[in-house]
Amino acid sequence: MFYPNSPQTSPQLTQIPYGQQYAMMQRQIQQPYHPFATTEPQARLYPYHYQGPIQQEQGGFITQQSTAASPQYVQMRVTPVDQSIMSGYPNQTANGSSSSSFNYNIHPQQQQQQQQQQQQLRHHAMPVGSVPLQDDRYRKQLIVNYLAPDVTSTDLHELFSRFGELDGARIIYDKQTNMSKGYGFVYFCHAEDAKEAVERMSGYEFHGKWLKVGYSTNPLNIVPSNSSPYVHAGSRGAAG
Rank of each mutant, 00 (worst) to 15 (best):
Y3M: 11
P4V: 12
N5A: 09
S6W: 13
S6Y: 15
P7E: 07
Q8I: 13
T9W: 12
T9H: 06
T9N: 11
P11R: 05
Q12K: 02
Q12E: 10
L13F: 12
L13E: 04
L13W: 14
L13V: 07
T14Q: 13
Q15S: 11
Q15I: 15
P17I: 13
P17A: 10
P17S: 06
Y18G: 12
G19C: 07
G19P: 10
Q20E: 02
Q21M: 12
Q21E: 06
Y22S: 04
Y22E: 11
Y22L: 04
Y22F: 10
A23Y: 12
M24K: 03
M24F: 06
M24V: 14
M25P: 04
Q26E: 12
Q26H: 10
Q26D: 09
R27W: 15
R27P: 14
R27V: 15
I29W: 14
Q31G: 13
Q31D: 11
Q31N: 10
P32V: 12
Y33S: 09
Y33F: 09
H34I: 05
H34D: 06
P35R: 05
P35K: 02
P35V: 15
F36A: 03
A37Q: 14
A37F: 15
T38W: 09
T38H: 03
T38Y: 15
T38N: 08
T39V: 13
T39C: 11
T39H: 14
T39N: 03
E40V: 11
Q42G: 06
Q42A: 09
R44W: 15
L45T: 04
L45Q: 07
L45I: 09
L45M: 06
L45E: 13
P47C: 15
P47E: 11
Y48G: 05
Y48L: 09
Y48N: 04
Y48Q: 04
H49V: 13
Y50V: 09
Y50N: 05
G52E: 06
G52M: 12
I54A: 06
I54D: 02
I54G: 09
Q55H: 13
Q56S: 13
E57T: 11
E57G: 10
G59Y: 14
G60D: 07
G60A: 09
G60P: 10
F61S: 04
F61T: 03
F61I: 03
F61E: 04
I62K: 06
I62Y: 14
I62T: 08
T63M: 12
T63Y: 14
Q65L: 14
S66F: 15
T67W: 15
A68D: 12
A68W: 15
A68Q: 11
A69N: 09
A69L: 10
S70N: 09
S70F: 15
S70I: 14
P71M: 07
Q72C: 13
Y73V: 04
V74C: 14
V74G: 04
Q75D: 07
Q75N: 05
M76D: 07
M76S: 06
M76E: 02
M76N: 02
R77E: 02
V78T: 07
V78M: 10
P80A: 07
V81D: 10
V81A: 03
D82L: 15
Q83N: 07
Q83S: 09
Q83E: 06
Q83D: 03
Q83W: 14
S84I: 15
S84A: 08
M86C: 08
Y89P: 03
N91W: 15
Q92V: 12
Q92G: 11
T93W: 15
T93K: 11
T93I: 10
A94T: 06
N95V: 09
S98I: 08
S98A: 13
S100V: 15
S100H: 10
S101V: 13
S101F: 15
S101Y: 15
F102M: 09
F102V: 04
F102Q: 09
N103S: 07
N103V: 10
Y104D: 02
N105R: 09
N105G: 12
N105M: 14
I106E: 07
H107R: 08
P108Q: 12
Q109P: 07
Q110L: 13
Q110S: 09
Q110G: 09
Q110E: 13
Q110P: 09
Q112I: 13
Q112M: 10
Q113H: 12
Q113D: 07
Q113V: 11
Q114R: 08
Q114W: 14
Q115D: 07
Q115E: 07
Q115S: 12
Q115P: 10
Q116F: 11
Q116E: 13
Q117E: 08
Q118H: 10
Q118D: 11
Q119R: 10
Q119M: 11
Q119C: 07
Q120I: 14
L121A: 03
R122F: 12
R122Y: 09
H123F: 05
H123R: 11
H123G: 11
H124F: 12
A125Y: 11
M126P: 09
P127C: 09
V128D: 11
V128C: 06
G129Y: 13
S130M: 13
S130P: 10
V131S: 09
V131C: 13
P132I: 09
P132F: 13
L133G: 08
Q134K: 07
D135N: 05
D136Y: 11
D136E: 07
D136L: 08
R137M: 02
R137S: 08
Y138P: 02
Y138I: 02
R139Y: 15
R139Q: 03
Q141S: 00
Q141G: 01
L142K: 01
I143F: 01
I143W: 00
V144S: 01
V144K: 00
N145P: 05
Y146N: 00
Y146I: 00
Y146E: 00
Y146F: 05
L147F: 02
L147G: 02
A148P: 02
P149K: 13
D150N: 05
D150Y: 13
V151G: 03
V151H: 08
V151W: 02
T152R: 06
T152F: 07
T152Y: 10
S153Q: 07
T154Q: 13
D155M: 04
L156Q: 04
L159Y: 00
L159D: 04
L159F: 00
L159C: 03
L159H: 02
F160S: 02
F160V: 04
F160Y: 07
F160H: 09
S161R: 12
R162M: 07
F163V: 06
F163C: 03
F163E: 01
G164C: 00
E165K: 07
E165W: 13
E165A: 14
L166E: 01
L166Y: 05
L166V: 02
L166S: 03
D167W: 06
A169L: 01
A169G: 04
A169F: 01
A169R: 06
I171M: 02
I171C: 07
I171F: 03
I172H: 00
I172E: 00
I172Q: 00
I172D: 00
Y173S: 04
Y173C: 05
D174A: 02
K175Y: 15
K175A: 04
K175L: 05
K175C: 05
N178R: 12
N178L: 09
S180W: 09
S180D: 01
K181M: 02
K181Y: 01
Y183S: 00
G184E: 02
G184R: 02
F185W: 00
F185M: 00
F185V: 00
V186R: 00
Y187Q: 00
C189Q: 14
H190L: 05
H190V: 02
H190W: 09
H190D: 10
A191D: 01
A191M: 12
E192P: 08
D193W: 01
A194G: 01
E196W: 08
A197R: 01
V198E: 03
E199V: 05
R200N: 03
R200D: 03
M201R: 01
S202Y: 06
S202L: 06
G203M: 01
E205M: 13
H207K: 08
H207C: 06
G208L: 01
G208R: 06
K209M: 00
K209N: 00
W210Y: 01
W210T: 02
K212P: 13
V213Y: 01
V213K: 00
G214W: 02
G214Q: 09
Y215L: 01
Y215C: 00
T217V: 04
L220K: 15
L220P: 00
N221I: 13
N221E: 03
V223E: 03
P224K: 12
S225V: 06
N226G: 08
S227D: 05
S228C: 11
P229K: 02
P229V: 12
P229N: 11
P229W: 11
V231N: 07
V231D: 04
V231I: 11
H232G: 06
A233C: 03
A233G: 11
G234T: 03
G234W: 03
S235D: 11
S235K: 07
G237C: 06
G237Y: 01
A238C: 13
A239F: 09
G240H: 14
G240V: 12
